[in-house]
Amino acid sequence: MTAPPAAHTVRTHKTLRTDRQGPVLSIELNTPDEGNAVTGTMLDELLAVLDAQDGDVRVVVLSGAGDDFCLGGDRSEFAEQLAHDPTGGGIRASGAKARRVCEALSANPAVTIARVQGKAIGAGLALALACDLRVGADTATFRLPELALGLPTAWGGLLPRLLNEVGAARVRELVLTCRSFDAEEARQLSILQSVVPEGDLDAAVRAWAAPVVRRSPTALRITKHLFNAYTSATRLADITALDAELMASTLAAHEYTTGKAARRTGHLF
């Protein structure tokens, strides 16, 4: 007697597309014309989807539609937020949501997998790094441009995750130079655990997901808790709760002194 087929549900949101097939939930950033730039709406939808995740989900796959995984934060939205509230209140609110999204990925009871193609910049890199497993196309590129834009590396708890995964000396060089690096270097830095041709990304994700969905949900959940607990124990001080405040204060100060922030367009980071 054959087992019944796994339930398959596809939903399209304003900025996301979700595909639930049995124990695997796929979340696709779905604004390819904007490079899947992170907006307040996208953060709200990511939080809603992750908060609604049920206990039968064993694997969560995060991907991006189109040519790029994610080009970072939406600069035009930040400019609008500053124009509405020059003290940075809107940016603080977005920053707090960004931290909650990244925590929802890293602390997720399911195994989270980032599927990366094209560019993963700033906030896009932060979303990928919040996942347990990360596979990238051999043509993927990465960058942390915040300092070049006059910003601190303070989005979604990115910096302590980088320090923990990569190491202080290498992270310092990437943050201070703001240079791009390719998929092979990302693998050497443990930002990616696997690099494959772009056409093989889905197969690589399935190869990781297949054994995970057979694991005991209780053992899987406890193992995730243990990983997160031991990782947190290696951080002498985690001040990521201040990320939103640091970003808002820096942007508000820059707007006050230069008057340029509200006139920018494009992507921030």
Rank of each mutant, 00 (worst) to 15 (best):
F69C: 04
P160E: 09
D56S: 14
Q81N: 10
A96D: 15
S190F: 10
M42K: 03
D74N: 15
I113R: 03
V61L: 03
Q188T: 09
D132W: 01
D51A: 15
T139D: 13
G40A: 12
E198V: 08
R264H: 12
L162V: 04
V171Q: 13
E77L: 11
G35V: 03
A137G: 15
V61P: 01
A183M: 07
P152D: 01
G157K: 04
T9I: 14
V205E: 11
G136L: 11
C131L: 10
L82Q: 09
G89N: 06
D182A: 08
D200P: 00
S194G: 00
S249L: 04
L174D: 00
Y230R: 14
E146W: 08
H225N: 08
S94M: 15
R214Q: 12
A209R: 07
D200S: 12
S63Q: 15
E165G: 09
R143N: 07
L133V: 14
V111D: 06
F69A: 01
G266C: 07
R115L: 09
C70H: 08
A120D: 00
N228K: 06
T9P: 02
K97L: 03
D182C: 02
R11K: 08
A241Q: 11
A137Q: 09
D138Y: 02
Q193W: 03
L127H: 08
L25Q: 05
L127C: 06
R58A: 14
I91D: 01
A169G: 04
Q188V: 00
L46Q: 02
R215Q: 15
I121E: 05
Q53F: 05
V61G: 03
L226A: 10
D51F: 11
A204W: 06
A262W: 02
T15F: 09
G167P: 06
C102K: 06
Y256L: 15
D44R: 08
D54F: 02
K119R: 12
H225F: 08
R161S: 07
